[in-house]
């Protein structure tokens, strides 16, 4: 744990070494997020409410998503690169260290771009989503659970590379699908897509269910997110470590 924190600190220093580009990337990401808020503003201006969702709900949704992505993809940036790192055997670097590999791997890269999301999301929540103390507490809990869901999901799909080879493309697809689907109101999706969002692409636990919790707290729903996070973490941990046993490092060309 201590060494993971030390690594994170080092990765952060490495990420912001180029200060101008660091600040610039943070600003750009915030611009991107603002573009989306503008879209939803225009949409709800036109439509009023749709399937029970209002502009205010979307604000809450975006504050959750951007902060989850900011922490997950910003501070633990390697979570979306596990597949690639297995393919090009850069995980060897971690395997020779006297520390647990998964945690170390996740802490080794900080992505400034996504820290922009983090800043944006926190400001958005504080400025526009009624940050009463209770709501702030619930929001924080949802963010932390969301980070677990996102990071665990990405580690899980990335670990497929141990078994099926390739250059980690399926992990990229999983990543894009998760982020895309988490950025739309859950209740706009019906039928099979909705099932998908609670299972294979667990975007519902990052934004959909938390937004509903922020409207009216329901212990059952909260327990659902906790369970989803726990299952995904177990799945990610075991898939990664099973994969490590089959790991063939740099020898992929022999296949």
């Amino acid at each position: 744990m201590r060494s993971a924190l030390a690594t994170l600190g080092t990765a952060f220093a490495d990420g912001k070494a180029n200060r101008a580009s660091f600040v610039f990337q943070i600003v750009l990401m915030a611009v991107n997020d603002i573009a989306w808020i503008v879209f939803w503003g225009l949409f709800f201006h036109r439509v009023g409410t749709a399937n029970g969702w209002t502009f205010h709900d979307v604000i809450v949704m975006f504050s959750l998503l951007t902060v989850v992505a900011g922490i997950g993809l910003g501070l633990f940036a390697n979570c979306r690169r596990i597949g690639r790192m297995v393919a090009d055997s850069s995980i060897d670097e971690v395997l020779v260290l006297p520390v647990r590999p998964l945690g170390q791997l996740l802490c080794r890269r900080v992505e400034p771009t996504n820290l922009g999301d983090l800043v944006f999301g926190v400001i958005l929540f504080l400025a526009a989503a009624d940050p009463t103390p209770e709501r702030l507490l619930l929001w924080t809990a949802c963010v932390l659970l969301g980070v677990c869901v996102m990071v665990a999901f990405l580690v899980w799909v990335g670990s497929f590379t141990f078994f099926v080879g390739g250059r980690g493309e399926h992990a990229d697809l999983g990543f894009n699908a998760l982020l895309l689907l988490a950025s739309y109101p859950l209740d706009f999706f019906g039928g099979p897509v909705r099932v998908l969002l609670f299972t294979i692409v667990p975007a519902a636990f990052i934004t959909g269910v938390p937004v509903s919790l922020m409207r009216h707290f329901a212990p059952g729903q909260f327990a659902l997110i906790v369970a989803a996070a726990a299952i995904l973490i177990a799945l990610a941990w075991s898939t990664f470590h099973l994969g490590l046993r089959r790991y063939s490092s740099g020898s992929l060309w022999m296949r």
């Binding site: 439509v47 749709a50 399937n51 895309l180 689907l181 950025s183 109101p185």
Partner: peptide, 27 residues
């Protein structure tokens, strides 16, 4: 590989946006 990923992502976007407009149209 690149092409199919790109097309696949586009289909996902179409799915998401059409769900958005479906909700709006129904309302």
């Amino acid at each position: 590989g690149d092409l199919s990923t790109q097309v696949g992502m586009m289909l996902l976007v179409i799915l998401a946006l059409s769900s958005v407009w479906h909700a709006a149209a129904v309302a």
